[in-house]
Design a protein around this nucleic acid. Structure first.
Ligand SMILES: [Mn+2]
Ligand SMILES: [Mn+2]
Ligand SMILES: [Zn+2]
Ligand SMILES: [Zn+2]
Lengths: 154, 154
DNA sequence: TTTCTACATTAGAATAGTTCTAATTATTAG
DNA sequence: CTAATAATTAGAACTATTCTAATGTAGAAA
């Protein structure tokens, strides 16, 4: 199963989004980078490098784990992917570039995106003393999902 | 240098706070646990297990790193200490039990506490869909401190 | 088109941080 | 005091990631 991109804006148009962003920073668009990016954005979850490696190998069987790490590092530098740190253990990667929070489901181990209104985000950022210049804010919930009659996802 | 406890309430009174909390969960108060807790709460920072190990050894030279890890795990389970995950790499430990956010200073690598008004926290929690039951919320800023004429800390 | 150069990929070694194991020691209960 | 239980310890094992050094690739210069 495949998903459409999260949102269509001038700066997020899946195809050639990558080479575009890479070009901007003097980095090359390579088959490995394209596939890692495409596989990551094709599913709305937060895989580890290892999990992504397994998915990517289906399309490019000779890619190495080191390359997956290298590609992810590149994508993070280009701001095409976010790192999310929900647990000790493996880093997770998020392809959703919209401002959002994460909810870590302690029962299943899954991390899902939670929309967060710009006004709430502004409220949060306003708590910082004037001379603290935040470049990013991460909001992480931990808890459980009360399954009375739950639609599979939001 | 030593600091007073962050705040005095019925459930946070430094001395015997520990044995009190431990008793509640059927755990023993031991010299190692007492010292790890006391050393951690005596400084307002967010040390790694290794850093804390170094500090604790000054008072108890034969304590082992494994024990520091064990004690920290116990303290986290008792809700006397919070884990904070600001970077890939070593876990950090926070002795401040008040609801607060963290600011990771990318220049210095230091993580400091930022007070966060209850109303803002409530705002943040309100963004969750009804069937998501959050047990905790973590807010982490990353950025730099604009040092025009900065007092050493807040 | 060949050559030069810089960049990217790769396998495997090395590293860092943490957890596990098995032996010893300490505390509590009977 | 003895037995049972829990905690500590040193070191081995483990996991995730980064590093190293060799090889591959692709565009730019000639
Ligand atoms: Mn993590
Ligand atoms: Mn971390
Ligand atoms: Zn996400
Ligand atoms: Zn803190």
């Amino acid at each position: 199963m495949s998903f459409p991109p999260f949102h269509m804006t001038a700066s997020n148009m899946n195809t050639d989004n990558l080479s575009h962003h890479l070009a901007g920073t003097g980095l090359r668009s390579t088959p490995q980078r394209e596939i890692v990016y495409s596989v990551l954005t094709s599913k709305r979850d937060h895989p580890t490098a290892d999990e992504l490696f397994a998915r990517v190998k289906q399309q490019m069987p000779n890619i190495s784990l080191a390359t997956v790490y290298n590609c992810l590092e590149t994508l993070v530098q280009c701001n095409l992917v976010r790192q999310v740190n929900v647990e000790r253990g493996a880093m997770r990667y998020c392809p959703n570039l919209h401002p959002h929070a994460h909810f870590f489901n302690e029962t299943t181990g899954e991390t899902i995106d939670v929309e967060i209104p710009a006004e709430v985000l502004a409220q949060v950022s306003s708590v910082l003393p004037k001379h603290f210049k935040a470049k990013s804010v991460e909001i992480l919930f931990r808890g459980v999902v009360d399954n009375q009659n739950t639609p599979t996802s939001l």
